[in-house]
Every structure is written in structure tokens, then in C-alpha cells.
């Protein structure tokens, strides 16, 4: 290596490689830190996944085994085939998907009006939205239940969708409004001057630009509906119309919890949200930032 090079060149070369080395060590350290952190974040899932592969008698074995000695899929089979679990799964999927789609429509039109149009009472309505974000939704259960009865919605999946969409309106409008405001308005203005009506401007120009924020909103509303427990418990009676969180709760017994079964059911429940998140996550970072806090 040193055969042809002058001493000067050699020094320079060494210096360079030292800097490169430092960079490499630095980035290695960053990756190491991130990996350790990620492992810490994943540990609770890994351990409960491991438990889901154990027979219940081994849930509190001593010493605890991270890798089960006698792994079995029995819990998954039992959870999945226990009466109606599959149905609950589809119910959750339908409710979450409908909530997501309707939220997109409702929140985007609302947010656009707040961001771009002038009308009397605008600030008052917006303030109302902000304030309701501070009031816990649990307090509304009884009135909402009576309302659902009035509309004949009790014991039906639409009752879930209706309340989930309503619950999401303030935050989602707030987030999307921020995003619309962060968009340049020139395009819309010129379209307006060219005589396009506002709905066309909204759907052809503003919405396409808002894709990242809409993707974010899609994730939030899907997740919210997928995980909701209290309202679903209250309004659904039919075994055939239940959603997943209630099913999981049913496995948590009155006398002793069957941990393996609980975690097998939980793992199954996590899969769809993972899929939705991974699918939309590309938009997520941009959408969440611009919407949450415009600059």
C-alpha cells in the first residue's frame, strides 16, 4: 500500500480514513442506540408473543422462558375458533373502515371551510370544537345511548360508526385545517378567478395536495375505531355484532386470566392495524407535521 505514495500523500490518506472511521463509528453508534431502544420498545410484545405460544400453566413458570420450551399454537387455534371471534374480527374491520372513510369526507370538508372560507361565527364554532376536545367522552355515554335508541340504532354497527366519526370531528378538523392553511393558495385563487366553483377547487386542487394529511387522518380514525372499548361494550348486545376489544376482554376471566389465550387474541388483533399503518406510513410524517403545527 505504501509502495508508490509520497509521505505527504500517505499522511493525507491516513487522515482521511481516520475521519471516515470516525464517521463510521459515529453512525454505528447511532444504529446501536436505535437498535437497543427498538428492542426495549418491542420487548413487551416479544414476551407476550412468547406467552401466547405457551400452555396456560406455563404463564408464570420459573424461571420465565423467553423462548417457550414446549411451544404450541393451541391458544391461537382456540382464540380464533372460539365462538364468534372471527365474526368480531370482521365486525371490527367493517366498523373501522367505515369510520375511516366517513371521517375523511366529513373532516376534510369541514377543515376546508375553516381554512379557506369566510363566514360568520367561524371562530365560535372552531372554539367549540377545541373545547370539546378537553371533555372526556365517557361522560357522554348515557345521553348518546338514549340518542342511539331514539334513532333505532341500538345494538347495531352503525351506532358505533356514527359515534366514532362524531368523536373524531374536532381533532381531525383541527389537524386538517392546519394542513390546508399550510398549502399555497395561488393555485386555488387562479382557479377561482377562472370561474371554477368551490367544490371543484376543493376536490380537484386542495384534496390531492392534502394526501399526506388525509393518509394520517385515515390511520388515526381507523385506529381509534379499531381499539374503542367502552362505547362498543355499552351499545352492542348481540353476540354477533361485537367488536374485538370486547372479545379480548372476555378471555380475561373472572377468576383467573388465561394469559396465553388473551395474548394470542391480542396478537391477532394487532395485525390489521399494522397493515394499515405500514401502508399509510409514508404520508404520515408529512401529514402529521403540517397539520399539527403549521410552522
Amino acid at each position: 500500500m505504501a509502495t508508490a505514495a509520497s509521505p505527504m500523500a500517505q499522511v493525507r490518506k491516513q487522515g482521511l480514513s481516520r475521519a471516515a472511521l470516525a464517521r463510521r463509528v459515529g453512525s454505528l453508534a447511532i444504529y446501536a442506540l436505535l437498535s437497543v431502544g427498538a428492542l426495549g420498545m418491542m420487548m413487551p410484545f416479544l414476551y407476550s408473543f412468547s406467552t401466547s405460544l405457551k400452555r396456560n400453566v406455563f404463564a408464570f413458570e420459573f424461571p420465565p422462558q423467553l423462548i417457550p420450551l414446549h411451544p404450541t399454537l393451541q391458544n391461537y387455534v382456540e382464540a380464533w375458533t372460539s365462538n364468534n371471534f372471527q365474526l368480531y374480527f370482521w365486525n371490527s374491520l367493517i366498523v373501522a373502515t367505515l369510520t375511516m372513510l366517513l371521517s375523511l369526507v366529513v373532516a376534510s370538508t369541514q377543515a376546508y371551510a375553516f381554512a379557506r372560507l369566510r363566514f360568520p361565527g367561524k371562530n365560535a364554532v372552531f372554539m367549540l370544537y377545541l373545547i370539546t376536545m378537553m371533555i372526556p367522552s365517557t361522560v357522554m355515554i348515557l345521553p348518546q345511548f338514549v340518542l342511539a335508541r331514539t334513532f333505532g340504532l341500538l345494538n347495531s354497527l352503525p351506532a358505533l360508526v356514527v359515534v366514532y366519526v362524531a368523536g373524531g370531528i374536532p381533532f381531525q378538523t383541527f389537524m386538517l385545517r392546519g394542513f390546508f392553511e399550510s398549502l399555497p393558495r395561488e393555485l386555488e385563487e387562479s382557479a377561482y378567478i377562472d370561474g371554477a366553483n368551490r367544490f371543484v377547487i376543493f376536490s380537484r386542487i386542495a384534496l390531492p395536495l392534502a394526501k399526506p394529511a388525509l393518509g394520517t387522518l385515515a390511520i388515526f380514525s381507523f385506529l381509534g375505531a379499531w381499539d374503542e372499548f367502552t362505547w362498543a361494550l355499552t351499545v352492542i348486545n348481540d353476540v354477533g355484532k361485537r367488536t374485538l376489544p370486547i372479545a379480548i376482554r372476555l378471555f380475561q376471566g373472572q377468576h383467573a386470566t388465561q394469559w396465553g389465550l388473551v395474548f394470542a387474541a391480542s396478537m391477532i388483533a394487532i395485525v390489521p392495524v399494522m397493515v394499515v399503518f405500514v401502508a399509510f406510513q409514508k404520508y404520515f410524517v408529512r401529514g402529521i407535521a403540517a397539520g399539527a403545527v403549521k410552522g
Binding site: L98, L101, S156, P158, L207, K211, L214, G215, Y283
Partner: peptide, 28 residues
């Protein structure tokens, strides 16, 4: 993501969602 861009599809989605809701509502 792309579908939502185009207004026809957006309409279809909205309509479809409403139809599904109504369906579920009446089926109960």
C-alpha cells in the same frame, strides 16, 4: 391515495360508505 384524488372516485367512496351504512342499518 390516488383514488381519492379524483372526484368521481371520492364520490363513489362516499356513496358506497353511505350505502353500506344504510344496508347494515336495515339489515339489523
Amino acid at each position: 391515495g390516488k383514488g381519492f384524488v379524483c372526484p368521481q372516485l371520492a364520490k363513489t367512496v362516499a356513496l358506497g360508505a353511505t350505502a353500506l351504512l344504510l344496508l347494515a342499518f336495515f339489515m339489523a
